[in-house]
Amino acid sequence: MSPLLEARELVRIYETRRGLLGRSAEVRAVDGVSLRLRRGETLGVVGESGSGKSTLGRMLLGIDAAQHGTVCIDGATMPNPGTGDWRALRARIQMIYQDPLAALDRRLSVAQQLREPLDIHRIGDVESRTQRIRDMMQSVGLRLDQTDKFPHELSGGQRQRVVIARALMTEPELLVCDEPVSALDVSIQAQVVNLLADLQRDRRLGMVFISHDLKVVRNLCDRVAVMYLGRIVEEGPADTIFVDPQHPYTQALVSSVPQPGRALDSRIILQGEPPNPGNRPPGCAFHPRCH
């Protein structure tokens, strides 16, 4: 059986210009990434800003076109973005972003936000749509008296629940989450992470969970891929990868996570500048910072 999601050798290059008249430069945001995801599996993608993890997330849905490489959903190559076939496929693959206020339409009530995907994909009739909205609100932990609320009337955690509910309205098989809990406070973050874990298990969703937060990723995901400057530098089971990291970058990343009770001076502190994807070091991209 083919995996739910298979990406082969994905490359995404942005052209940038330095200064007003400067020469254009290539930024290899994603540089030859391959990954597979089974149904019901959660893959964590971690890395710092500029590692290409968000670009990768968008490429997996076809929102950002790959210059090279292919994305297959259920063994079938992703149709070209913008085509009817691609739009039809989008009901099966959905995305959740970091900032719920930006992802939601401020002028639409909760019910309207949730109805939209059903209208777009012509799922069900008026009555069944209303029922589906109610069921979904309950399964993401929203109260039914919040049906007519607008985004600004909800708390941050509730807004993110609306975003998650909206993404699930079309009953997708694949969910790509880009930093879905990073804007939330710790106590609320745990609520939303648990919600995602439950929904993922109950619906056997394939989930790609992009985050810079190693602690959340480890507890939620089955496998983890670590990205640095557009490439996956290490991949492994969530149980072991942070316990026994092999790549020096992963080691530094794990070591930099503040943990209560661990002394500050026992950490590996990376020297040097954060990576600039527009000026990729030759050879191993990590070598200038490698300890």
Partner: peptide, 24 residues
């Protein structure tokens, strides 16, 4: 106590997170 319990750990067995119910 709730804040501590809500922080996911990086070591030990993977576990379900422990949120504080409700909101501020």
């Amino acid at each position: 106590r709730g804040l501590f319990d809500a922080i996911p750990s990086l070591t030990g067995p993977r576990r379900r997170l422990v949120p504080i119910p409700g909101a501020v």
